[in-house]
Design a protein around this nucleic acid. Structure first.
Lengths: 243, 243
DNA sequence: AATACTTTGTGTTGTTTTTACACTTTCATT
DNA sequence: AATGAAAGTGTAAAAACAACACAAAGTATT
């Protein structure tokens, strides 16, 4: 087994959009005593240690791959959490002791958020006990994970206003209505359909395909793709994004 | 002496504006051998350890106060640096060994940037060997501090586009021309004076004072102040900032 | 006292962007 | 053949943006 730094960890706030709601991937945490009786059960964000010699970016990618089986998904470092009491709740101390760790040792956690479409993920991957929870239905989490989640949301909302990352929450091919829905859900607002289309039609990196939705009980919508390449070449011209 | 965590540190990128250029506060680092011969000299950003039990925000405030004698200045956490080789340059290893530290131990550094007017600071404070260097004249720095500086600049430019932090680089009372200059220097662009004034006149949190410049060899300009209080109450309405 | 110098402070016009708003088309289902 | 459901499209009024020049108010110089 590879040795890891026991004072640095990475927490990934993995956001998944399912065309209806914004969800976050949470892990079940259950602690049982020696006889197998359940002491408590609650949930955490997805996090892990960093191995010796591993960069934090690589650690975040690894965590993401372990949980979703996906590579090359959008990942952004947004904030680091190092409050000396951040692991100090009663259940957290029990959990750490059970894991032979010193609950009084400060652990620095570097926060990343990831964006993907829930469609892309098979949660049965490696049989992890993880599940999607709508962000507005998340209850009390372990450690300081409610704080980390709310900071991740804040950072993500700020980024989505200024950079084209809405696409990351959709399948590779998507319709304009789906894109509009992404922004409406995340920014908790509504847009006029015609004005929204007028706006995004100015974005040269939003590429219309010669392809339509299939099997829908209404006029099938045209599909689009996001071209990061075109975006990188034109972003100097673009000042305001959505809103 | 208070014990500190030897694996976490805070680096503060302290930006100071002097009405002409954007500067960063750097510290001289000189290593001498036992006989007093100078082995090398170079510069670092301002950073320090975090004491046991101290929050990182408090550590950043402390570093800032130690160097400038100022409290309540604008401070923003922008990124964390934890590459396993970040302290691995030859001079850095010598420096760490001289300081009885293990150069192979990874140190996580949490990056903050601070904004202030150079006018507010007396560098003779506590006789520190620090100085202002224009950001476009900074040479090779110790550790990974060139990377940290450039990431701080990127983050600061991004924030200043979306949040009213330009004021933080000026004295409490300032003129509109000084404010315009801040944005011109930092964004490396020019604005039309009338259009700039039209834009900022819409910001209710920019408060005109019944006071004018004194002792200038030309028509004295009206002074203004930034009201964070008004801003906090009105920011929901504000969508685009400068540019 | 007059003049030169420097920076402040102000308005209009044409262009672009934003906002508000409704109906027809296309497909699957019954 | 009719129904239901979302796609797709244009216009007009309001707001914001970009480009542009000159008189006013003070200090310094003579």
């Amino acid at each position: 087994m590879v040795k890891y730094s026991d004072y640095i960890s990475v927490d990934c706030v993995i956001f998944g959009f399912d065309f209806e709601k914004l969800n976050v991937l949470l892990v079940d945490r259950t602690l049982s005593d020696a006889k197998g009786n359940e002491l408590f059960t609650d949930m955490t964000l997805t996090g892990n240690h960093i191995y010796e010699g591993e960069t934090i970016q690589a650690a975040a990618d690894r965590i993401l791959f372990d949980l979703t089986g996906l590579k090359n998904i959008y990942l952004e470092q947004f904030r680091t959490f190092a409050h000396p009491d951040r692991l100090n709740k009663e259940n957290d101390r029990k959990w750490l002791l059970h894991d032979n760790r010193d609950p009084d040792k400060r652990i620095v956690s570097i926060g990343y958020f990831a964006l993907l479409s829930t469609q892309k993920v098979t949660l049965e991957w490696k049989g992890r006990n993880v599940k999607w929870v709508p962000v507005d239905e998340v209850g009390e989490l372990a450690f300081d994970h409610n704080l980390i989640l709310s900071e991740a949301l804040k950072a993500m909302r700020s980024t989505i206003l200024h950079e084209p990352i809405g696409f990351e929450l959709l399948p590779t091919k998507f319709t304009l209505s789906q894109l509009q829905k992404v922004y409406e859900i995340i920014l908790d607002t509504g847009f006029d359909k015609r004005n929204f289309r007028k706006k995004v039609s100015r974005m040269s990196y939003l590429m219309p395909l010669d392809e339509k939705q299939k099997g829908v009980a209404h006029k099938p919508a045209r599909l689009y793709m996001f071209s990061r390449e075109v975006y990188e070449n034109t972003k100097k011209e673009i000042l305001n994004f959505i809103v």
